[in-house]
Amino acid sequence: MNIFRLFGDLSHLAAIAILLLKIWKTRSCAGVSGKTQLLFAVCFITRYIDLFLHFVSLYNTEKVMKLIYISASVFTCYLIFFKFKATYDGNHDSMRAEFLIVPAAGLACLINTKFDAIEILWTFSIYLEAVAILPQLFLISKTGEAETITSHYLFAQGSYRALYILNWIYRYHYESHVDTIAIVAGVVQTILYCDFFYLYITKVVKGQKIVLPA
């Protein structure tokens, strides 16, 4: 474990907590893409499937973190699609999730480190996570704005994988460890946030709201 990975995971936990707080406090999921949250839940379940297969006692923080990620993302989907369904902005959350899931599944079958079920599921979850934020960014471009709290969520979510890139550089240099699939997907994922990062740093940090040119 190195500082970049630690802060990456903390940033990821912060993003999940910020979103849950926003929905719970405002009792509304306006401006939040339910599809992105569904895709994240699929990512966690397919990536941490080993938790279900051979459940081992929660002997380390990693198992606890995986359970937190899975339960928090499923709970977020429950809030969006059930509890606060009336506030879900369905007609703006219109990016076709199939256009993300099918290519990720296809690519996972073509490019992977080992052709076995668990490895393919892990690879699928890595590819899917890289593009899972697209429906959320698409929704913001459709509505033309993002609530400040949602911007903080996106900043934390984007920073998590950006910090992981630093973690991979660190591990390559000091541990000669390299996981090419995770690195390439993580770089793609972070690049997708660049436009948002620019808006966040030039606007939200100065207290303005993000309003996209309509």
Binding site: Y69, H177, D179, T180, A182
Partner: peptide
Amino acid sequence: CEMHESHDEL
């Protein structure tokens, strides 16, 4: 060298 162990990151 690429040490291929099971993916040990979240």
